[in-house]
Simulated scan of single mutants.
Amino acid sequence: MVTPASTDPAQRVREVVQPVAEAAGLVLEDVHVSPAGRRSVVRIVLDLGDDAIGSLDLDTLGAASRDISAALDAADPVHGQYVLEVSTPGTDRPLTELRHFRRARTRLVQLTLRDGSTVHGRLVAAEADGYDVETAPGTVVQVDPAQVARAAVEVELKHVHDEGPHDEEDLD
């Protein structure tokens, strides 16, 4: 049994899970360990890498979950019994890091700026020096990241990826 050095349970879990997530090509977004009666609940949040567009599929998430479970069993960073929950950030995650904005490219977003105004549209590019948001067809506004107070992806039931004829495979 290999026990990580940290005394914080979440940090011990993070030390075990980080290499597993990286080996799967994923980003370890968050780790929470909380008591739940006689057990603990270990919540792991995984995401795709910085430049990936789309969602983490269930097969990849399932495989990563099995690998994480095996690594936690081998290292035993959580004392006693625990329930493991492995998930993705979901669409309600606020966009707070450049990586989050890059992952949200092609998505409909709402940015609330520090002056109280909002920018609403499709995020077409995200770089450290600015976010490009298409607010209307052919109209792209560049937003300075330092001016963004809050940002979130808006849920769309259907999203057309191209301008040509569409079949079911073209819809989000």
Results as ranks from 00 to 15, higher is better:
D73K: 06
A21M: 05
Y131T: 11
E156M: 12
G130Q: 14
E163F: 13
F101G: 15
V153W: 09
Q142S: 14
L72S: 11
R102A: 07
D51R: 05
V155Q: 09
L61V: 01
H166N: 07
A70T: 14
S40R: 02
E127R: 13
M1Y: 10
H32M: 04
P137H: 00
P165C: 01
D50C: 07
D129C: 09
E29R: 15
F101A: 15
V141P: 03
V143L: 00
G54V: 00
E163I: 01
G25I: 10
T91K: 02
D73N: 08
G90T: 01
D170K: 02
V155S: 06
A21P: 11
D129S: 14
T91D: 13
H79M: 01
D132R: 04
E163Q: 15
G25S: 04
L123D: 02
R114C: 09
G116N: 11
Y82P: 03
V148A: 07
D144E: 04
V33F: 08
G130L: 09
D92W: 04
S65T: 15
D76G: 03
D132F: 04
L95K: 10
Q11M: 10
A23L: 08
Y82Q: 11
V13H: 05
A149M: 15
S40K: 05
D73M: 02
R103K: 07
G49A: 15
A136Q: 11
A36L: 09
G54R: 10
S117I: 15
D50S: 01
T88P: 13
